[in-house]
Simulated assay, not measured.
Amino acid sequence: MSEITVRPLGEEEWQDYREVRLEALRESPEAFASTLEQEAAFDEDFWRTRMTRSARLIAERDGAAVGVVSVGTAETDDGADAGELFGLWVKPELRGTGVATTLVKNGAALAQRRGQSHLYYWVGTENGRAVAFASGMGFRPTDERRPMGVASAEDGEEEIAMVLPLGQDPGVVGP
């Protein structure tokens, strides 16, 4: 298999982000808060603005997009300068091959370069695979819960905030 590379997308690459985002919504509609129909209707100005609100990292193999993740700023109760990882998606045929790990490591490194002390990642409490993946990356569960933020969520389903410390503690598993 060819090497996977991860790079940030600039505002001028909004069409590249739009393409992979719509593919993610098409392939895994249950994993996102928005729908393919909603986002396909957004105009260029919307996509350009979206590119400036959070960092968009794209994983590529042989120049083709195979995964994506976004890194923004988390809203925390204690006012901590923390990042938030969201919108993680990998092409189904490449799941389990390290693409998601590479995207998350790059997202954590970006948050650390920004000076953020922690990286939050919201995961469905019933999504054992996602919880195990995040735990394996060094994220730890918190007491924070919120209603599930995806379009397919049933009433009462929740997400848990998992957090990855980005400090210099040698006992912390991180990027």
Results as ranks from 00 to 15, higher is better:
G83L: 07
D169Q: 02
E27R: 09
V71W: 03
E39K: 00
R146G: 04
E30H: 08
A64W: 09
A111Q: 13
A153V: 05
M137H: 11
Q38W: 01
V99N: 07
E39W: 00
G167C: 05
M148T: 05
E19N: 00
T97I: 07
V150R: 05
T101D: 14
Y120Q: 15
K105R: 15
K91F: 03
A64I: 09
T76K: 04
L110F: 15
T76A: 04
S152Q: 05
L85A: 03
G87I: 04
W14Q: 00
S2C: 05
E154N: 04
D62E: 15
A74L: 03
L22Y: 00
W122P: 04
R7Y: 02
R61A: 13
R129D: 12
L110D: 11
G72M: 02
F42Y: 01
L94T: 10
V71P: 02
T52A: 01
Y121G: 11
E44V: 04
V90H: 08
R18M: 00
V6R: 12
G128L: 15
A33H: 06
F133M: 07
G72Q: 02
D169A: 03
L166E: 09
A40Q: 14
E37R: 07
E11W: 01
Q116C: 09
N127T: 08
E39N: 04
H118E: 15
E19G: 01
A31P: 08
T5W: 02
S152D: 07
G98Y: 14
D77A: 08
G171M: 13
A161M: 06
E37W: 04
L166Y: 11
Q116G: 07
A40P: 03
E75Y: 07
R95V: 04
F133N: 10
M51K: 08
I4T: 15
A74V: 01
A24R: 01
M1F: 13
L103I: 12
F86M: 08
A111H: 13
N127C: 08
R145I: 08
T142H: 05
V6Q: 13
E93G: 11
L103V: 12
G167N: 13
G63S: 09
T35D: 11
R113M: 05
V163C: 08
A64V: 15
P175N: 03
A59D: 00
S70A: 13
V6F: 13
A134Y: 04
D169K: 02
V71E: 15
G174W: 15
E30P: 03
Q116F: 12
V172S: 07
P8A: 14
N106M: 12
P147G: 01
A109E: 14
R21G: 03
G115S: 14
T142D: 06
E12D: 14
F133E: 07
D155M: 09
S152A: 13
E75M: 10
G107R: 06
R50E: 07
A55F: 06
Y121F: 13
F133R: 09
D77R: 05
F32C: 10
E11G: 02
A153P: 04
E158H: 12
V131S: 10
G171L: 14
R146N: 04
K105V: 05
P165L: 13
G136C: 11
F139D: 09
